[in-house]
Simulated assay, not measured.
Amino acid sequence: MFFYAAKVLWFLLQPSTLIALLIGYGSVLIWTGWARWGRRFVSAGAVLLLVAGLSPLGNALILPLEDRFPRTNLDAEPAPSGFIVLGGAEDRLVGQARGAPTLNEAGERMLEAAILARLFPQAKIAFSGGDAGLLYKSDSEAAGAGALLTELGILRDQLILEANARDTYENAVFLKSELEKRGALGNGKRWLLITSAYHMPRAMGVFREAGLAVEPWPVDYRTRGPADLTRPFDKVSEGLRRVDVAAREWVGLFAYWVSARSDALLPAPLATNLGCDLVRPGATEAGGSPASPCRPNS
């Protein structure tokens, strides 16, 4: 139920949809006795469209998420036991119809998995991704990922494919169950999590809450860093999409925290103190230790 509600609500609440509805509703009112309000709505929508589409607002929203988790140290001991790759890098609807790999702008998730698999040939690659479509159904992302990764040179017995998860919460829960069945968790096991940098805070919080200890390996960066805080977009569509992506993550962080699917409102690296992590009361790390080194200010 959570999955379906989240899909529908986000379609209605995402900034691009709200702006379109504001302009559309105002356009209708202009032809009624509420013309003055109609012009106000249209004007407000136009201003928001320009601000969201051309200003650096999207970069300002996404940058704190991308910078939240640095990459872990690959040289630390023990060597990685495996790499967890989250779905979201494929368009399976098109890929299934065309019979060809169809990576989207998050394709670095797959590329990094292939690179790391070559660096650590003894490590497993655990991919989690099902079919998250509502109106249009396709096969699972895991099916496409398995085919692509083997074509990139990864041995089939090096892969662990989980094909039922539809969101980040299910990624963590289903994958933990699969890895436990294989005896791939426990002392001496070290798993790294590969996902988009802006998505890493929410993913880390969910995996911690599920009791699956992972280390971050963020990819798919959308900004260069602070320099992009003053960089406007040259296409309204690109800026608006950046705002949508960032807003979705911030709303997702709050929704997952409120629904007890994440251990913190804004998860942070446990080895450093990056400020208040707003830990949900009672949340704990796998093994029973506190979920975060910081607590809300009193």
Rank of each mutant, 00 (worst) to 15 (best):
Y4G: 09
A5N: 07
L12M: 10
L12R: 00
L13K: 05
L13E: 02
L18M: 10
I19G: 11
Y25C: 14
S27P: 10
V28T: 07
L29Q: 09
L29K: 12
I30Y: 07
G33A: 05
G33Q: 03
W37G: 10
W37I: 11
G38A: 03
R39Q: 10
S43N: 13
L49A: 15
L50V: 11
L54V: 08
S55M: 08
A60H: 14
P64C: 08
E66W: 02
F69H: 00
F69E: 00
D75S: 14
D75Q: 15
A76R: 15
A76H: 05
E77L: 15
E77C: 03
A79K: 08
V85H: 02
V85F: 05
G88K: 02
A89D: 03
E90A: 09
G95T: 05
G95C: 04
Q96R: 12
R98H: 11
R98Y: 10
A100G: 13
A100K: 15
E105W: 13
A106F: 11
E108W: 05
E108S: 13
L111H: 12
E112N: 12
A113G: 09
R118C: 09
L119A: 15
P121I: 02
A123V: 07
A126I: 02
F127S: 01
A132W: 03
L135E: 02
Y136P: 03
Y136I: 14
S140E: 01
E141S: 11
G144M: 08
A145Q: 08
E151N: 10
I154V: 13
E162I: 00
N164I: 05
N164S: 11
A165T: 01
R166I: 00
T168Q: 01
Y169H: 12
K176C: 04
L179W: 03
A184H: 12
A184T: 02
G186A: 07
R190A: 04
I194P: 00
A197W: 03
Y198W: 09
M200H: 06
M204V: 07
E209G: 10
L212A: 02
A213N: 05
E215P: 09
W217P: 08
W217F: 06
P218H: 07
D220R: 04
R224N: 11
D228H: 08
D234K: 13
D234F: 12
V236S: 13
S237Y: 04
E238I: 12
E238D: 14
L240P: 05
R241P: 03
R242P: 05
A247C: 14
W250M: 12
L253T: 08
Y256A: 13
Y256D: 13
D263Q: 07
A264Y: 10
L265V: 11
P269W: 08
L270H: 14
L270R: 13
C276I: 14
P281N: 06
P281M: 07
P281Y: 04
G282M: 07
A286L: 07
A286M: 10
G288Q: 03
G288F: 06
S292L: 11
S292P: 11
P293G: 09
P293S: 04
N297I: 15
N297M: 13
S298A: 13
